[in-house]
Design a protein around this nucleic acid. Structure first.
Lengths: 158, 158
DNA sequence: CACGACCTTCACGTATACGTAAACGTTAAT
DNA sequence: ATTAACGTTTACGTATACGTGAAGGTCGTG
């Protein structure tokens, strides 16, 4: 049966609670991120409901990852994503541009942003690996101490 | 513990501001971490100045790493380090214990904590690597788009 | 023993990242 | 057409992680 009125599933848009459930966020957080300029919904309904498309969801998933997994502050995330206005301009400019040179420069800009994101994440990984090494050193000291005790020693190693 | 006239350098202890400068923290933060039970200074002077030893500084460095590099909240850090009272008890118990079996069980406990720290850090690294992969996918899409444009295409790839 | 530079413990102030409620409008199904 | 479930803006409340005095004690050098 065909629905007479476009439902969110057929329109390709999701409402804020649907997005929130999907991503494990609250509607408040999503609105707050918008307030900070981290994203803006692809569209609004006639009654001005926020409507999110796939790219919005991808972006929100990335934001959540930066927050939860990487532990970045929203200010840092804002820096990483660059200002949303520029993104919207790029998106619009690209889709409306037919000039290959113009399209090229937009793509090059996006590439620069993505490379910066990669560097930032890799940098964070490096620092975490340094911490792992420090913890491993502590682990080794304790292991040696244990071995000494089990060999009848006093455990006063190093 | 009464020190006649402890010069920080000769006593092997550092006062709070010296520790703060060394680690790039504020005295307020250090006192706050103590308030939360993340650490307690090895000693106090006669006039009740906080006095920190090498292990305190190592611990603070680790805390700072977990906060800045790993982006953990102080609550998570507290979990990772387990409660300070237990640490103090262990430290005291170990140094005063002569019973090898007792010393062994203390070392085994410490090992368990350190292994948990390693797992937590490795887990965080894994999640970050997943994010890097996602960013790399985006990077590749943009690169292909750029190649298409440079080959005279429209850049409407995929 | 004086004095400046440090320390102590309250205690209130602040930025971030939301939670929560009020007052009201929208959507979709009955 | 009604109504429950959801959305909107606005605004105040709250936990975390400190900053910033105030009021006073301590340290160590002259």
């Amino acid at each position: 049966m065909v629905l007479t009125h476009p439902s969110t599933v057929e329109s390709g848009f999701l409402k804020i609670q649907e997005v929130a459930s999907e991503l494990g966020l609250t509607t408040r957080s999503i609105r707050y991120y918008e307030e900070l300029g981290l994203l803006s919904p692809a569209a609004r309904s006639d009654g001005s409901y926020r409507l999110y498309d796939a790219s919005d969801i991808e972006r929100l998933r990335f934001i959540k990852g930066l927050r939860d997994d990487a532990g970045f502050s929203l200010a840092e995330i804002s820096q990483l994503l660059e200002d949303e206005a520029a993104r919207v301009r790029s998106r619009e400019a690209y889709s409306h541009s037919v000039d290959p040179l113009e399209r090229r420069s937009i793509v090059v800009d996006s590439l620069a942003r993505v490379e910066r994101q990669k560097r930032t994440l890799r940098d964070k990984i490096s620092r975490l690996e340094v911490m792992v090494i420090a913890v491993e050193a502590r682990h080794q000291r304790l292991t040696r101490r244990l071995a000494d005790l089990d060999a009848g020693g006093t455990g006063d190693v190093r």
